[in-house]
Write a protein that binds this DNA or RNA. Structure first.
Lengths: 233, 233
DNA sequence: CGAGTCGTTGATTCTTTTCAAAGCCCGTGG
DNA sequence: CCACGGGCTTTGAAAAGAATCAACGACTCG
């Protein structure tokens, strides 16, 4: 899950939870997750809906997924983005409290919660692992929350880019070259802004020399230090 | 922890996690938490700080605690409020990722994490319990996040009042009479607004007949339905 | 009773949204 | 191969919302 603030726990997460590795023999969750079946979804296809019985836990193998909620007034808000290696729905109660949708074509490992719960009852260390996963997700959600509550549009967009850059670094990709698999609307719904504002901020960053924008879906960071400063303000 | 949106899980939480009951014989976390020692803190006293080793878990017995973070630019943001029966720090990693402060004089049960982890290793059902607690806190945090991201100042303040009202109902207090143990600044820092805006919204609600404000620290709800509508918009 | 903190209210400024229109990219079909 | 169409993105101008700056009022604690 994408964390918008300091990378305090990202390193641990990389080694421990298992962000995608070149030839990963092991699932992010170890043996119980091996039991799962493969699910393939197309872009913009819903994986589950807010209110559904929380029957499965998913691990993203390929592609990108978002968790979102539709508010009473019809607005959509994206709560988080999930990348390969991330686990979705491990921390649900009886029903999912948000919907999940593929943003790109995705491959998922789907594991029934019943299996996970059974394994957990037998192996306490597994429960600890899930607890840690929950703590990480909670920390990331708090980061995002703080970012949304206290920051200007400029800082939000800068923080978003920096988060993606950090993520790239964590999985061994180029931290200076950010692919945006999501649309401006997705970004806006994630940051609590409008598409116009997101677009304007990106244009401003480009005008000021912080980034390059060869295509709408590709951001090249030219002054990471400068962007990081904006993100903090 | 205070949830700003639909009361989807609050009922379960009341019975399961154990919000304060008249003569509670049992701790919210059952026997392992019984091992803890009592801690008393004064108003505005910090209980732990962002970055401290996460050595203890706390259960609020009396009074109110907030979790907050100081942003790089010096701004404070309050992530959540904790009421009697709530548990703080159960979902930490190596160090706390936020600070906790008493808003009123508080009594806390303090339990070393080492003890909890030891119990958990022996009793899997305990781990499940903590996992559930984490899921509840995550859900509440997401609710708050969505509220912050997508709502107007008016809706945020209305949602805040409704959340407090629901909490009152859940613990058997009058849902129409809300005591505000926190200052306007606390509320503002929680909702991502300024104190002036919070004050103005409360004045507006009063002027329009939705609430009464006999004292700054007491809100009487006169039109809950109406407020709920505002909160959704 | 006085000082100081907290809360309210008003006027102004700034940011972001809203409304509107034009540009760009990409796939489709002629 | 090129023209066309549709969705996504960018940009501009106007309007709305919240923050800021400033002053006043109310309550609490010595």
């Amino acid at each position: 899950m994408l964390a918008l603030m300091t990378p305090s726990e990202n390193v641990a997460r990389d080694t421990d939870v298992g962000v995608r590795r070149p030839a990963a023999a092991d699932s992010a969750l170890g043996s119980p997750m091996q039991a799962g079946s493969l699910q393939v979804s197309e872009a913009r296809e819903d994986i589950f809906l807010d209110g559904d019985d929380a029957r499965n836990v998913f691990e993203v193998l390929d592609g990108i997924v978002c968790a979102y909620r539709i508010l009473p007034d019809g607005e959509r808000h994206i709560v988080s983005f999930y990348y390969p290696g991330d686990v979705i729905g491990h921390c649900s109660l009886g029903t999912y409290s948000y919907s999940a949708q593929a943003l790109t074509p995705v491959r998922l490992r789907r594991v029934p919660r019943s299996i996970i719960e059974r394994s957990m009852a037998q192996r306490p260390e597994l429960a600890q692992r899930f607890l840690r996963l929950a703590a990480l997700e909670l920390a990331a959600t708090r980061d995002h929350l703080v970012c949304l509550a206290a920051k200007s549009a400029e800082a939000k967009v800068a923080a978003f880019l920096m988060a993606l850059s950090r993520r790239n670094a964590a999985v061994g990709e180029d931290p200076g070259r950010i692919k945006l698999p999501m649309t401006r609307l997705d970004i806006a719904d994630y940051l609590g802004l409008t598409i116009e504002t997101v677009s304007r901020m990106l244009s401003k960053f480009k005008r000021k020399g912080f980034i390059d924008l060869p295509r709408a879906t590709l951001v090249v960071l030219k002054d990471m230090r400068g962007l990081a400063t904006l993100a903090d303000a």
